[in-house]
Computed example of a mutant assay.
Amino acid sequence: MKILVTTVPGIENIVVQEIGELCPEAHSYVASSSGRVTAELPENCLARIITRIHSAENVYLLLGEADKLEEVGEELALHAKELIAWHKYFSVRAERITKDIETTSLEIASKIGRIIQEKTGLEVSLDFPDIILYVEYEAGRYRYGVYLTHAGNLRDRPYRRYIHRSALNPVLAYAMCRIASPREKLWDPFCGSGTIPLECLSIVPGLKALCSDVNSDFIRGALENSRSINKALLVFTCDIGHAPVRNFTVDAIVTNPPFGIREKSVGGLKRSYEALFRLARHNLEEDGKLVVLTTHRRLVEEISRNMGFDTAGTWRIYEGGLTSFIYKLQPK
C-alpha cells in the first residue's frame, strides 16, 4: 500500500529515516512538494506508523491517481461505499498544490462531494464525518485517498496540558532532538513549557534533561506537562546570562530562543544569543552539539564565527508563513 505523510517543510528526510526505523520494508521518498513524504509499505506496518511516528503531522492512505476530476469522484464513490458501509457521513479535504488550474481547493472538494453524494446517497458532514476523503492536484494529475489521522493531528501530544503562548510545534522539537542525538545529558535554556526536553525524552528515555527559562510561569507549566506523562525534568528559573550551572556539562544544548515576534528576549536578542553561545562554550562536553532554531540567520552565523563554532548542518524550515533555520553547531 502507499501512504502520504505530511510534516513541517524542511524535515522531510527525518520522516524518511523514522519510517525506515518503524518499517524496514518500507520504500520512502520525498515528494516533489515541500513537507510531504510518500511511502510504499506492507499493510502490517500501517498501524505502527500511525501510532508511533513522531516526525509527522498527518497520514493519508493513497488509493489511486487520475487525470480528470470526474474520474476521481467515480473512484472515490466506489471506495466510500466499501469503507463506510455502516456509516452515513463523509467530508472531502482537497489541496491544489500547483496553481496551473483555476479551480481552487474548496471547489475541488465541493465537486467531489457532490459526485459522491449522487453516487452513494451518503451525506456530507463537515463537523462530524465518519470518514474524510482526500484529493490533491499537482501538475495535471489528481491523487486521491483517505485521511487516516483525522481524529487528531499527530503533533497534538498528550503532555500538552500547559500551552506556552509561543509554543514550538512538537514535530519540529522532535526533529531537533534527532539532529542533536543526545546521549545522556541535555539542556534547553529557553525551554518554555518543556516541549524540546520532553520530545528528547521520547528518543532517549533515561536522558537527564535540564529545562530552564527566565519566566517562572513557563517553568511551572513545563513541570505540569512533564508530570502529566510521568517524565522527570530538572527545571529551574534563571536568566540565560546568569545560569547557576557552572560545573555541569551536557552533550547537547537544544533550544528555540525567542524570535522577537510574539516573545521578546530579556535584554535584547543579541545579548541573549551571545549568552547562549558562551553557555555552550562553557557547558558543552568536548564533542557536544548546540542545536538552535532561529529566524536570525546572520546573527547566529556572526556569533558562531566570533566564538569559534563550526556549522555541522543547516535545515531551512517553513511553518506558519515564517522561514526559520535549524543550526547544528560544534565548538572548534
Rank of each mutant, 00 (worst) to 15 (best):
M1L: 13
K2D: 11
V5Y: 01
E12H: 02
N13Q: 13
E18L: 10
I19A: 04
H27F: 11
V30I: 15
A31D: 14
G35S: 04
N44L: 03
L46I: 14
I53Y: 03
I53N: 02
S55N: 10
A56P: 02
E57S: 14
E57N: 14
G64V: 04
L76W: 01
L78T: 11
L78W: 05
H79G: 00
A80S: 15
L83P: 06
L83K: 15
I84V: 15
W86Q: 14
K88W: 00
Y89A: 07
R93D: 12
I97F: 03
K99C: 05
S105T: 07
E107N: 04
E107Y: 01
E118D: 14
E123H: 12
S125H: 11
F128R: 15
P129Q: 05
D130R: 07
A139P: 00
A139M: 12
Y142C: 02
R143A: 01
V146T: 06
V146F: 01
L148R: 04
L148P: 03
H150F: 15
A151C: 00
L154T: 07
R155M: 08
D156T: 08
P158C: 08
Y159L: 09
R161V: 15
Y162Q: 01
Y162K: 02
H164R: 02
L168D: 07
N169A: 12
A180P: 09
R183W: 00
E184D: 14
K185L: 11
T195I: 13
L207A: 12
S212Y: 03
D213Q: 06
D217H: 13
I219G: 02
R220S: 13
R220V: 09
L223R: 13
L223H: 01
S226P: 05
S226L: 09
V235W: 02
V245Y: 15
R246C: 07
V250F: 13
A252H: 10
P258K: 03
E263H: 06
K270M: 03
K270D: 13
R271A: 12
A275Q: 08
H282C: 01
L284Y: 08
E286K: 15
D287P: 00
L290N: 06
T294I: 09
R298H: 09
N306Y: 00
F309I: 07
G313S: 08
G313N: 06
G320D: 05
G320A: 09
L322N: 02
